[in-house]
Design a protein around this nucleic acid. Structure first.
Lengths: 199, 199
DNA sequence: TTGAAAATTACACTGAGTGTAATAATATTA
DNA sequence: TAATATTATTACACTCAGTGTAATTTTCAA
C-alpha cells in the first residue's frame, strides 16, 4: 500500500515545462520590478524577458499584480492546510501559532522586504495585499470551525482567526519597519505572546 | 469671540458648483452601476450622464473605483474624528463603540446593501474596500494613542483598534448576509458586546 | 498512430488612466 | 471696475492592462 506518491514522481513534460515557464515569468517580473520599478515595468517587457508572448502571460497569471501576490496567497493556503492537519487536543490559537511559525519563519527576510517595498509602490497591489489578509482570516476561520466544531465557540473562533492574522500582519509590519533587524520568527512569536496575554 | 463659523456661510459660486458637480457625478455613476452593472459602465457614459467631459471626471475622482469607495472612506474619517473628540474618563473601547454607533447607525440599510452588492461585482473594488478597513484600523489606532497616551498600553490599543474595526466588519457582513433583516445599529451593538465578553 | 486536451501565439479591440496645452470661469487685488 | 492670478474644464493624443477569438503547435492517452 501507499506506493503512488514518492517524491521522485516522473512529473511529465507538460508539468515540468509549466513550472519552468512559471518560474521564468516570476523571475523576469521580479528582476524588472527591482531594476526599474513596478509601475514602470510593462507586461510586454516581462513577456519578452521570459521568452513568451504577451498573451501567454495571461495564461499563467490573471494580472500583473499576481506576480507579486502569489507568494502571499500561497502562504495563506499553506497555513489553512496546516490547521486542517493540526494534532488534536490543543487550543486553536496554539495550532495557528505553530502553523504560522512553521510556514512563515523560513521565508528569507530580504525577500520579504523587497516584495513589501515593491507592493508599497503600487496602490492597487498594496490594497490587494491587505485584502488578502482579510481573505486569509476568513479561510482560517473556516478551517478552525472544521477542526473545532463546537458551534458555541463560533464567535470565539472568529476572534481567534482575527487575532492570529492580526499577529501576522503586526509581525510583518514590524519586520519591514525595522528593515529586518530582528528575524521574522522572533517577531511572530512576540506578536502571538502579546495576544495570549491580551486575552 | 467665535464669530467666524456660522452654518450659513456664503459658500461662493465655485464651491457651490464644485459640490454640485461632485453630486452629479456620483449620482450618474451610481445610477448607471445599478442599471447595468459596475464593470459594464464606462467612464464615458458616466461623464456624459453627468454632463462633463471624460477628462473632468479625473479632476474630481482619482479613479472609477472611488465613486463606490468615497462613502466607506468618509465614514472612516468621521470615526477617527469622533474618537479625537471623545469625552475623557472612559475606556477606549467604549469611546469607539459610541463613535461607531453614532456614525454608522443612521446609514440606510438599503444603501449599504446596494453598494455592497456593487462592490462585490468588481474584484479590485472589493479589495480596496477590505484594504480600507485595514487603513481605518491604523487610523483608529493613531487616534486612540493620541487620546490615551500611556505608552505601556500601546499594544492594548492596537488590539482594541483591531477588534473594533473587526466588529464593524462583522456587523456589515452580517447585515449584507441577512439582506437587512435586522438594523445595522443592532448588529453593531451585538458585535461590540461579543468583543467585550471575549476580552 | 491518432485523436483529444492543453499550451502558445497573432491580431484586433476595449477601456482606464495620464500628459499637455489651450481656453473659460471665478476669485482677488489694486 | 479693470487687471491679474487661480481654478475648472476641455480636446487630443497616447500608453498600457486586460479580453475575445481563432488558428497553430505541443503533449498526453488510448
Amino acid at each position: 500500500m501507499d506506493m503512488e506518491k514518492e517524491p521522485a514522481a516522473p512529473l511529465g513534460v507538460r508539468e515540468r515545462k509549466r513550472r519552468e515557464t512559471l518560474r521564468r515569468i516570476t523571475d523576469a517580473g521580479m528582476g524588472l520590478f527591482i531594476a526599474k520599478g513596478y509601475e514602470e515595468t510593462t507586461l510586454d517587457e516581462i513577456a519578452a524577458k521570459a521568452g513568451i508572448s504577451r498573451r501567454t502571460f495571461f495564461y499563467y497569471f490573471k494580472s500583473k499584480d499576481d506576480i507579486l501576490l502569489s507568494l502571499q496567497n500561497s502562504m495563506g493556503e499553506m497555513i489553512v492546510e496546516a490547521i486542517r492537519a493540526a494534532p488534536p487536543g490543543q487550543p486553536p490559537l496554539h495550532a495557528i501559532r505553530d502553523a504560522v511559525l512553521r510556514i512563515c519563519a523560513p521565508i528569507p527576510a530580504d525577500d520579504m522586504i523587497i516584495i513589501d517595498r515593491l507592493m508599497r509602490s503600487s496602490e492597487t497591489v498594496q490594497a490587494r495585499k491587505q485584502a488578502a489578509y482579510i481573505q486569509h482570516e476568513k479561510a482560517v476561520f473556516a478551517a478552525l470551525r472544521e477542526r473545532w466544531p463546537e458551534p458555541a465557540d463560533e464567535t470565539k473562533l472568529r476572534l481567534i482567526a482575527m487575532m492570529a492574522i492580526g499577529a501576522v500582519r503586526l509581525a510583518s509590519d514590524t519586520l519591514n519597519r525595522e528593515g529586518g533587524r530582528r528575524p521574522y520568527a522572533e517577531l511572530l512569536r512576540e506578536a502571538f505572546d502579546m495576544l495570549e496575554k491580551g486575552i
